[in-house]
Amino acid sequence: MKNPLRSEAEAFRFLLGAAVYFGLIAIAGVINHWAGLAVFVVLSVGVVWWWMRARRIEPPLQATPVRRGAPDERRILVIANRRRSWSSRLRSIRL
């Protein structure tokens, strides 16, 4: 599902889409009230179907934290998913 008002350019495209949508309904409605209703239903179903399927393709946000240590500082990530003694954990770490 896309937010149609996320930027000015998208809002402008939304305006053009709304103009076409209501324009077609108005033309059909002037010709015949039931035709207007039919166009309204068909267009509304189409728009909702398209809107529910629309996805925004964009890269994930960069979430890297700011480095606070010295440039040559080395760090070790220890994932301790089992209860072990400190000495046992130290032996498991290989630099």
């Binding site: 008002l5 930027s7 000015e8 809002a11 402008f12 209501f22 309904i25 409605g29």
Partner: peptide, 22 residues
């Protein structure tokens, strides 16, 4: 303001269609 302005225009299209045309 551009986003707001387009929204105002969309609302007028809705108002014009429903009140004046249909």
């Amino acid at each position: 303001p551009g986003i707001y302005w387009h929204f105002v225009d969309v609302m007028w299209i809705v108002v014009y269609t429903t009140v004046y045309i249909l």
